[in-house]
Write a protein that binds this DNA or RNA. Structure first.
Length: 749
RNA sequence: UGGGGUAUCGCCAAGCGGUAAGGCACCAGUUUUUGGUACUGGCAUUCGGGGGUUCGAAUCCCUCUACCCCAUCCA
């Protein structure tokens, strides 16, 4: 586990430390209604990863509460994805549908508690009654039904006596709640549908809000981790578990930001659209961000997992750059896979001064990859190179073959262009070349310097293969739909030429085609007769970038103008108070404003002021520190009193304590409600202002940090704060910061 | 417009009152029989804006702004 924990792991570690749970139990709870994508991989990595890191367990649970959209083929895909990523869910895959009887019983219990009722409004009425975000809703008249009636109705709903939509079961919470999710959420609806696991046993199915929290509880989940869009549902989650008064411990929900990657889409709906419309070739199309797609393209599970680790976990909506993912797979494959030669766009080269044939030794790995292995490379008079590797009109910095510039054939000889043969249209059809017999790779005595070594294949022995060149599916960063499809997302090269060992020896299933990229033997369409390779990812190409000389006009980066909104006007009373604070008490306008606008704050301030009057210091304390506490709690819930705050301010005024210590004391007051004098006394927090006591400490710090002293003297004045901080730390915060500051500045002169 | 969230480099992301981590991308240079890899160096005087508190603020307070989520009998 890395040093720096993400916020979820911090929560888990804290809970464990506090003894809230004996064991951490997480769960990965997908709905089996679509193929998992890399966003699921992030969730899998988080849930299984946390369980692994804290010696806990992660359940794989199919959240199958909607019989109309779910299917067993998706549960297979989900299981496969988790397994492929290398995680173990133990003996059983859990299903929410297994808990239907229990969940039903909980519903009965809620009805008996008077906390749930059968509503018989129709769909449209329910929507109307719910109100809007700014308007409270109103309760259905059916909410008045007796417990007996509700029980009877619900039982009959279960038995299938009613049509779909005739009744629903709702929690009785609050139709005026500011959180729309709390306006009597639906818990059960009638569905006369065949469920892929429970068949026709049930006529009612629980809703997410009811089933999910209970499933978590039933499984003994400790941390229920989900994505941001469920933040509002957390209130319902807590309400259900709390009102049912379940035996503790119970799970708590925590949310993180879902993964977004540019140049792709991640929503199940859009993915389904792409598959069904035939824009792509199934759920495992290598252009899709599905796990199946990445797998088929040739990504390794390790690279996906590394990616998930690299992007981190946070709560800010974000869009990760694809290049981050591409880096992960390149980085993984670089040290793993053999290098071979494949010519994607062949151009015939005849070496006119070479006769016969030979087999050259060629290592599968470059020197910097510590792996063993090699193959024989047939070589003869006729070979193929890539068209890109020859030009008659080289641009500046072109390293490859030209009429004037020789080039090395990787693992073989240096050749020189003699003649360029063209067809009637002027298209180059063949190069006649000479080779240097003394330039053989590994035994070069020719002394010829070349600028690069290119890939090639022997014409007589090369195998024809199909190469599928995949590029990003969309041409814009934040695609909306099919209109943004990249027309060149797939280029099929039917007859690329590859060296024979790749086909006959099969040293691996993933390869680096030298100077091209990483490729994967397609697991579906590959056969020895017709080999097919998928491009996983290209190599980094700093030449291609340079030569294309994309003159991307630097966008005129108009600096964002910040518009300042209107500040709400003060009421008359607030205005009067504001003026009094400013004019009579001498507070600055900001502090006066803060105090005047908040009734709780101003009355707290006045109460303290009547006890001890240094208006300014006190106002600062109240408008900053007290304000923070009053945000969460009401004045009556505070442990400390106005009197105590006045006392604290007095100690600042008479220099008994520094401002810094005052904050520390205040924190203690918040927690314990003790008198400030008592806290100062108990902890010995009286400030040290005597320079003769502080000086030696400073000397010590200076001596221990020669590097920083040098940096400071070199002009890094920010380091003053560092030294002051160190001294303060050494004195437990008691040194008078002003004195320290002056002294440090003096000593570092 | 009510409620719930979020803002730190081009993209992710640490940071929790005392020197603005790290990765990707990018730019230079070294090595290289892959224009790959590896290595070295450069990339935020500043943390959405404006105020305030403090010796000291990305971190505390006030205020404004922008973006995301919520009015499915989906999850």
């Amino acid at each position: 586990m890395s040093e720096r924990k993400d916020f979820l792991r911090t929560i888990v570690a804290d809970d464990l430390k506090a003894g809230k749970y004996d064991e951490v139990v997480t769960r990965f709870p997908p709905e089996p209604n679509g193929f998992p994508h890399i966003g699921h991989a992030k969730s899998i990595a988080i849930n299984f990863g946390i369980a692994r890191d804290y010696d806990g367990h992660c359940n794989l649970r199919m959240d199958d509460t909607n019989p109309t959209t779910e299917d067993t083929k998706y549960v297979e895909a989900l299981k496969e994805a988790v397994e492929w990523l290398g995680f173990d869910w133990g003996d059983t895959v859990y299903f929410t549908s297994d808990y239907f009887p229990k969940i039903y019983d909980y519903a009965i219990q809620l009805i008996k508690m008077g906390k749930a009722y059968v509503d018989s409004l129709d769909e449209e009425e329910i929507r109307e009654y719910r109100g809007t975000v700014t308007q409270a809703g109103k309760r259905s008249k059916y909410a008045e039904r007796s417990v007996e009636e509700n029980l009877d109705l619900f039982e009959r709903m279960k038995k299938g006596e009613f049509k779909e939509g005739e009744h629903v079961l709702r929690a009785k919470i609050d139709m005026a709640a500011a959180n729309m999710k709390m306006r009597d959420p639906l818990m059960y609806r009638i569905r006369h549908a065949h469920h892929f696991r429970t068949g026709n046993e049930w006529a009612v199915y629980p809703m997410y809000d009811f089933a999910h929290c209970l499933s978590d509880y039933i499984e003994g989940v400790s941390h229920s981790i989900c994505t941001l869009e469920f933040e509002n549902n957390r209130d319902v989650y807590n309400w259900v578990l709390d009102t049912l008064e379940l035996e503790p411990p119970r799970p708590y929900q925590h949310e993180f930001a879902r993964l977004g990657i540019n140049y792709t889409v991640m929503s199940k709906r859009k993915l389904l659209e792409l598959v069904q419309s035939g824009v792509v070739d199934g759920w495992d199309d290598p252009r899709l961000p599905t796990i199946a797609g990445y797998k088929r393209k040739g990504y390794t599970p390790e690279s996906i997992l590394t990616f998930c680790e690299q992007i981190g976990i946070a709560k800010a909506n974000s869009m990760v750059d694809v290049s981050q993912l591409e880096f992960c797979i390149r980085d993984d494959l670089n040290t793993k896979v053999p290098r071979v030669m494949c010519v994607i766009n062949p151009l015939k080269v005849t070496i006119t001064n070479y006769e016969g044939s030979e087999a050259l030794d060629a290592s599968y790995y470059p020197d910097d990859v510590p792996k063993e292995g090699s193959r024989k490379l047939p070589f003869s008079k006729e070979i193929y190179i890539d068209r890109e590797d020859f030009t008659e009109a080289p641009s500046k910095g072109y390293f490859r073959l030209t009429p004037e510039q020789p080039v090395r054939l990787k693992h073989a000889y240096i050749i020189e262009c003699q003649e360029v043969i063209k067809d009637a249209d002027g298209k180059i059809t063949e190069i006649k070349a000479h080779y240097h017999a003394t330039s053989k790779s590994g035994a070069d005595t020719s002394g010829i310097k070349v600028k690069s070594a290119i890939q090639w294949v022997d014409a007589a022995t090369a195998k024809e293969v199909e190469v599928r060149l995949y590029d990003r599916l969309f041409s814009c960063e934040a695609p909306e739909g099919v209109e943004d499809i990249n027309p060149d997302s797939l280029k099929v090269i039917k007859s690329a030429l590859i060296e024979p060992a790749v086909i006959t020896d099969k040293p691996d299933e993933r390869f680096q085609f030298e100077r091209e990229g990483y490729f994967y033997a397609d697991p579906v369409d590959y056969s020895d007769e017709k080999p097919v390779f998928n491009k996983i990812v290209g190599l980094k190409d700093s030449w291609g970038k340079k030569s294309k000389a994309r003159k991307v006009t630097p966008k005129p980066q108009a600096k964002k103008v910040q518009v300042d909104g209107e500040v709400a006007p003060m009421s008359e009373a607030e205005q009067a108070l504001f003026e009094k604070y400013q004019n009579e008490l001498g507070l600055n306008s900001e502090v006066a404003n803060t105090l005047a606008r908040d009734e709780q704050l101003s009355s707290f301030y006045e109460a303290a002021l009547s006890i001890h009057s240094t208006p300014v210091t006190l106002a600062n304390m109240v408008s900053n520190e007290v304000a923070r506490e009053l945000k969460e709690k009401s004045a009556s819930a505070l442990k400390f009193t106005a009197e105590q705050v006045a006392e604290l301010v007095k100690m600042i005024d008479d220099s008994t304590i520094s401002n810094k210590i005052a904050k520390q004391v205040f924190e203690e007051m918040v927690k314990s409600g003790d008198n400030p004098a008592k806290i100062v006394e108990a902890k010995g927090l009286v400030q040290i202002s005597d320079p003769s006591k502080i000086a030696p400490i400073i000397d010590d710090i200076i001596e221990k940090n020669p590097d920083n002293v040098a940096k400071f003297k070199a002009g890094n004045t920010k380091l003053l704060g560092f030294f002051v901080g160190q001294v303060l730390k050494a004195t437990g915060g008691k040194a008078n910061p002003q004195v320290v500051n002056a002294l440090v500045a003096e000593k570092l002169q």
